[in-house]
């Protein structure tokens, strides 16, 4: 079936592909961290009893969750540099570069999803814990930091990681603005050498192996964390 196919093209382009993979992994890890931090802030805002806090947060989360990631990437890739230029008043403001444009887009996009996971995680902590913390004389901030969030995050770790795996798959979409992530590298070689079948199957295989292994690890973690509940 695969006669006439040239799997040697993969060996020849391994260095370039690994560079692309580093880009993908870097983008994944950094936007995951950024997304979780921003997502926690958003989640706390959404749970706050003040309208000025929860309305903007809810609006943001619902807006981002209704918009396709590709459109969000376009928004940030094309408009953020222009907005920055206007804001800074410097017509020649240094662009933040493609990697950081993508990083900002993914962080802001993922934050909306992480927010919902974290909100559910916080709500899963029994109310008694909050009351107990207040009864002990802790302030709101202390109660969150020392009592609620540590428990919430413990419950959430598997879901946060699963979302991270989805994020890793989603980074392939930077293809639409021509960046060289793993998929971008694969498709550039595929098209230059006319080797689409080999490269795309190889890309699928690599993504599958990485994501499958990661999911397996997450599943093990989940089992460990659910002990004693």
């Amino acid at each position: 079936m695969f006669t006439g196919f040239d799997f040697d093209v993969i060996a020849r382009s391994l260095p370039y592909l690994s560079q692309g993979m580093l880009f993908s992994l870097g983008l994944t890890v950094l936007s995951m961290i950024g997304g979780i931090v921003l997502g926690t802030v958003l989640a706390l805002m959404r749970l706050a009893p003040f309208r000025v806090l929860h309305l903007p947060a809810s609006g943001y989360v619902n807006l981002l969750r209704s918009t396709p990631l590709i459109l969000v990437i376009f928004w940030f890739y094309f408009l953020v540099p222009l907005a920055m230029k206007r804001l800074s008043g410097d017509a020649y403001a240094t662009g933040i570069g493609p990697f950081y444009s993508a990083l900002i887009a993914f962080t802001l996009f993922e934050a909306a999803y992480y927010c919902e996971i974290i909100r559910a995680g916080i709500q899963s902590v029994p109310r008694g814990q909050v009351h107990a913390a207040f009864a002990l004389g802790l302030t709101y901030g202390q109660a969150m930091r020392r009592v609620i969030l540590p428990q919430a995050f413990r419950n959430m770790v598997p879901i946060l990681l699963t979302q991270g795996i989805i994020l890793f798959q989603d980074t392939s979409l930077v293809y639409v603005v021509g960046l060289t992530d793993f998929m971008g590298a694969a498709s550039k070689i595929a098209q230059r050498d006319g080797r689409l079948v080999e490269m795309y199957l190889f890309a699928a295989l690599i993504y599958f192996i990485l994501c499958f292994l990661a999911s397996y690890v997450v599943k093990r973690l989940q089992l460990r964390y659910s002990v004693g509940r």
Partner: peptide, 21 residues
């Protein structure tokens, strides 16, 4: 299989790879 391969890659496989194999 379908959950662990990015949608974009699957899209390319349907469109570019399938007709060749």
């Amino acid at each position: 299989v379908f959950r662990n391969v990015p949608l974009l890659v699957q899209m390319f496989i349907w469109y570019f790879v399938l007709p060749e194999i």
